[in-house]
Design a binder for these strands. Structure first.
Length: 120
DNA sequence: CCACTGACGAGTG
DNA sequence: GCACTCGCCAGTG
């Protein structure tokens, strides 16, 4: 088999997203990092955007940092589906509509403040 | 090959 | 808390 020219990065990220336990959520940066791209959180979102219809990937378990549903910005209707699915799995939300990562975070290890380059 | 894009993340103002 | 900027990197035209 030829190696899939397009989406090698996607496949890795999708594979990770698929491993998210039911009832828990992971962030885009999280799945990207687990897929081998610790410094490419955008790939997480990009990969989700490129998800083919009917894929077995539980994309609804992937949220933005802080448990926010960034999808709402693009497809509010689809975002509602995401929320309903999560609630159906027992995920709770804050009054503001954010997932309680303290309770449902897949791996809540927070790599203490990304050591970013000084911009000063 | 070059330019632009983007379901992000974190910092600064 | 909101708006803007930079970084990071694969995919697409």
């Amino acid at each position: 088999m030829k190696k899939p020219a397009a989406g090698e990065a996607y496949l890795r990220i999708w594979a990770v997203a698929r491993r998210i336990p039911r009832g828990r959520v992971a962030t885009y940066g999280q799945i990207a990092a687990l897929a081998g791209y610790p410094h490419a959180p955008r790939l997480g979102g990009y990969a989700m955007y490129a998800l083919p219809p009917g894929s077995p990937i539980p994309w609804h378990r992937v949220v933005a940092a802080g448990g926010r549903l960034s999808l709402a910005r693009l497809d509010p209707e689809n975002a509602l589906t995401q929320r309903l699915r999560l609630e159906a799995e027992g995920v709770t939300f804050d009054p503001r509509g954010r997932v309680r990562m303290e309770r449902h975070g897949w791996k809540r290890d927070r790599p203490a403040a990304t050591p970013r380059r000084s911009r000063s």
